[in-house]
Write a protein that binds this DNA or RNA. Structure first.
Lengths: 174, 174
DNA sequence: ACCTTCATGTCCGAAAACCGCGAGACTTGG
DNA sequence: CCAAGTCTCGCGGTTTTCGGACATGAAGGT
């Protein structure tokens, strides 16, 4: 490859009302991945794809990140909005994930609406797929996308959590 | 991706007793590719795979490289031995190409011997394949590999050139 | 000698399978 | 007649699978 010095990523853990989460951050303090510990294997698989050869060291995430996550679960549901993230999927995935962060707290979109928003009205299922391979749960709010008929339809972390997150955000959206 | 500023590569041309060659070097002065101009398309295809997004600018290769190539064809057949090269194939290809440079000037190996040398006695045909996709002709001496029965069997630049190179090296190996 | 045949490892391109959907046709049951 | 559930099918990007191709070599038959 051109030039790939192995990158070291920090893996932290925090407990939340819906279970413990893993938070992966890089040297610049950007969040690279976030997922619930009961899906740790899945997250590692995604990481392996997006940051091949990276070295994972258990450690503490930067304080701003930890504070933001705590605040979010404590009711300050907008605390995650400005958190820097970094992903590395395909161009299509990048578009989808970027679009996700534009959904305001307390609102939802359907897969079709999201597809239309990125200019590909037909790519409905592809949006679902990209959604499902989002490495940064909660912060990149893939849980705000639901079926066009209002059903939740799916969530990598379990539908229960999706339901909880949406209710939590709705309750504190002010 | 992690971090990919587009890289610029320099493309030079030199004439030799067996035809004009293209030499591609990078900013650090390492040789990235070398092939005969009548197979320019093939080389570009390999480059596209190994250095995607790189920008090719016609120009002059570093003097040490040009001197070494000249010297080699003038009879100083060991002049290329220390030339820095950089490739980017698969792990298997990297092993094969590294093994190639350990074949001394004036000697040859069979595909089977080379396969055994990298610890994969069965990967005989795979060695041939990797050999054929060597982007850096002459300097990485894929021409020193011949059939176990002494036939030349194949060369991306044409068997005539393979024959010439081997004879040239044998004549000046001292 | 020469010419099959066969086993063999890797890579690449094509094709198929996979889905966190959605719209429309069809069934039920009220 | 209407509403809500079920089924079917097309959709598009990504991943996985699969089938050749190949710069071989050894064996076995003419």
């Amino acid at each position: 490859m051109s030039d790939k010095r192995p990158e070291t990523l920090t893996v932290d853990r925090m407990s939340t009302p819906v279970g413990e989460v893993l938070i992966v951050t890089d040297a610049e303090g950007a969040v690279r991945a976030l997922d619930f510990t009961d899906f740790e294997a899945r997250m590692m698989r995604l990481l392996a794809r997006h940051a091949p050869g990276a070295i994972l060291v258990p450690g503490r995430a930067p304080e701003p990140v930890r504070r933001a996550v705590s605040a979010y679960f404590d009711g300050d549901v907008r605390a995650l909005d400005a958190l820097p993230v970094r992903t590395s999927g395909t161009a299509f995935q990048a578009e989808v994930w970027a679009a996700l962060r534009t959904i305001p707290v307390g609102e939802t979109r359907s897969y079709g609406q999201l597809a239309a928003a990125i200019g590909r009205p037909g790519a409905v299922r592809a949006v679902g797929l990209a959604n499902g391979s989002n490495p940064i749960g909660v912060i990149v709010p893939c849980h705000r996308v639901i079926g066009s008929n209002g059903t939740l339809t799916g969530y990598a972390g379990g539908l229960e959590r999706k339901r909880w997150l949406l209710a939590h955000e709705a309750a504190h959206a002010v």
